[in-house]
């Protein structure tokens, strides 16, 4: 059983490109179609795992593993998810330090660095759209980005401030109702 869990999550770790909701069908196929848990239970776990900090794929693997086989299950599933990335990246890290100064590699990287920035800018806009930010709320992300970028405030403080702000606003709103 532990071995099956390990292999199932290794597969999930290998094919998580994109992350988040892109992974839903993949994990569901591994976990629900095998009869490890009901679809409802899985959706519940999925939504809670998304609201936790840390790496989403790891969170959900620990959750599923823990449900099925307690602590050891959680550990086995997490290791399965991590293993493919870990091995692949380590191999690249070992080689990359050797080829970094190669002329061709340097040229290719000069070209792809600006594209990386574009690849981060796009999900920023799609996220803004998917959580349906109102114009008034726009102050929060714009303010946060400017504080980090121009003022050099640590993102850690921004996150803590967002949690505190959300708590104050949300709990007050509940009181009014």
């Amino acid at each position: 059983m532990y071995w099956t869990l390990f292999l199932a999550f290794m597969k999930i770790g290998m094919f998580t490109i994109g992350g988040g909701y892109a992974m839903l069908p993949l994990i569901q196929r591994e976990v629900v179609d095998r009869g490890w848990m009901s679809k409802e239970e899985f959706i519940d776990i999925f939504s809670v795992a998304q609201s936790l900090p840390g790496i989403f794929a790891v969170n959900i693997s620990i959750f599923v593993g823990y449900r099925l086989k307690k602590k050891l299950g959680g550990l086995v599933c997490a290791l399965g998810t991590i293993m493919p990335s870990f091995v692949i990246i380590l191999l690249i890290a070992l080689c990359f330090t050797q080829v970094k100064d190669n002329v061709w590699v340097e040229k290719a990287f000069k070209g792809l660095r600006p594209a990386v920035v574009a690849l981060i800018a796009v999900p920023c806009l799609t996220t803004a759209r998917s959580i349906k930010l109102s114009y008034k709320q726009l102050v929060i992300p714009v303010g946060a980005a400017l504080l980090i970028w121009l003022v050099g405030v640590s993102p850690a403080w921004i996150i803590l401030a967002a949690i505190v702000g959300g708590l104050v606003y949300g709990l007050n709103k509940r009181k009014e109702v």
């Binding site: 609201s51 660095r113 990386v116 920035v117 981060i120 800018a121 999900p123 920023c124 996220t127 803004a128 959580i131 930010l133 709320q137 726009l138 929060i140 992300p141 714009v142 303010g143 946060a144 980005a145 980090i148 970028w149 993102p155 921004i158 996150i159 401030a161 967002a162 949690i163 505190v164 702000g165 959300g166 708590l167 606003y169 949300g170 709990l171 509940r174």
Partner: peptide
């Protein structure tokens, strides 16, 4: 209710964090 409230602040801030990541690399 605490978790739900915290996310009222976290969700919009996340957009700012991603934007900052892009701006810092520019």
């Amino acid at each position: 209710k605490y978790v739900e409230s915290a996310f009222l602040g976290l969700r919009p801030a996340t957009v700012g964090l991603i934007a900052a990541a892009a701006l810092l690399l520019m």
